[in-house]
């Protein structure tokens, strides 16, 4: 299970990195979103991917360990932050397109100087 998750995380990270290095601004945005979501999945795996539901699986009748609930709470917070950043980034990209009429980042090199 951990090996599978580690592979998936690695693949997603490389996909995100690949997209961030593109010329097309929309792809760059998608790449950054993938990276921020992969960080969340990674955070989930840090709590252990096996085990029972927290609290419910406690007690004498059950012999399985409960999963650590804290990373899940952390991920919820991180998702909300990621959501807000995504909303901002997408509206920014729209304004960016309105202003420049293109989303090719390579042709804008040095425009911010």
């Amino acid at each position: 299970m951990s090996l599978a998750l580690a592979t998936v995380l690695g693949l997603l990270f490389s996909a995100g990195t690949y997209l961030i290095l593109r010329r097309d601004a929309v792809r760059v945005v998608v790449g950054s979103l993938i990276i921020s979501q992969v960080a969340n999945i990674y955070l989930m795996t840090m709590g252990g991917s096996e085990g029972g539901a927290p609290i419910l699986s406690h007690g004498a009748k059950h012999d399985i360990h409960a999963t650590d609930p804290v990373p899940q709470a952390l991920v919820l917070t991180a998702i909300v932050i990621g959501f807000a950043t995504t909303a901002f980034l997408l509206s920014l990209i729209y304004r960016f397109y309105e202003e420049n009429n293109k989303i090719d980042l390579e042709s804008l090199r040095g425009e911010d100087r």
């Binding site: 961030i20 601004a25 760059v28 945005v29 950054s32 979103l33 990276i35 921020s36 992969v38 960080a39 969340n40 990674y42 955070l43 840090m46 709590g47 804290v70 990373p71 952390l74 991180a78 932050i81 950043t85 901002f88 980034l89 920014l92 990209i93 304004r95 960016f96 202003e99 420049n100 804008l108 425009e111 911010d112």
Partner: peptide, 30 residues
């Protein structure tokens, strides 16, 4: 134009930075 382009780069850079921070914090928790 300039400030939007700057913001775009700034936001994407910081998304990567924040993801790395999450990874480090999650790892330290683990």
């Amino acid at each position: 134009k300039k400030s939007l382009f700057t913001t775009l780069k700034y936001v994407i850079l910081n998304i990567i930075g924040s993801s790395l921070m999450l990874i480090a914090i999650g790892g330290l928790y683990s």
